[in-house]
């Protein structure tokens, strides 16, 4: 019973961990480079969810100080602020890796990791 209560209390964090592990599973098991980039994005989303969940306060209001909610309980604004930086970095990383994938496809004609390893080792042996 205590374990069930603990799980219900920490459901946000468990969701974050689950998303992170789904992304990690995608990165590890798939050899398609685009699918790996999607996995990295899911991993990033899991970390963001985990970090934003730290700022939650039960019964709290969003930190916007209108006249209606003077003296109310406000949630923690700092995790939301810090995660904005993370979102920008993940977008930049995604675009840069996609551009590298386009170049790889132009050079080798495939975006499959195993195929690429085989092609590059053949090229090295040929040289």
């Amino acid at each position: 019973m205590i374990i069930l209560q603990k799980i219900l209390e920490n459901i946000n964090y468990l969701g974050g961990i689950a998303l992170f592990l789904i992304g990690l599973h995608t990165v590890v098991t798939h050899s398609n480079l685009i699918k790996r980039i999607i996995g990295l994005n899911i991993m990033g989303t899991g970390v963001f969810l985990f970090f934003v969940a730290i700022g939650n306060v039960t019964g709290g209001e969003p930190p916007i100080m209108t006249e209606d909610n003077i003296g109310a309980i406000f949630i923690n604004p700092l995790p939301s602020v810090l995660i904005l930086t993370g979102i920008v970095v993940v977008v930049s990383m995604t675009v840069y890796s996609l551009s590298l994938v386009i170049r790889i496809f132009e050079t080798y004609g495939t975006i499959d990791q195993k195929e690429l390893t085989r092609l590059i080792s053949e090229q090295n042996n040929h040289d």
Partner: peptide, 25 residues
């Protein structure tokens, strides 16, 4: 992966995660 999920969950359960004003964050 299931083992990794359990290990990380145990780490969560030891964290001071209560969503109240007393939380260390």
């Amino acid at each position: 992966f299931i083992a990794l999920f359990l290990i990380l969950s145990i780490g969560i359960f030891d964290m001071p995660t209560s969503p109240t004003l007393d939380a260390p964050s």
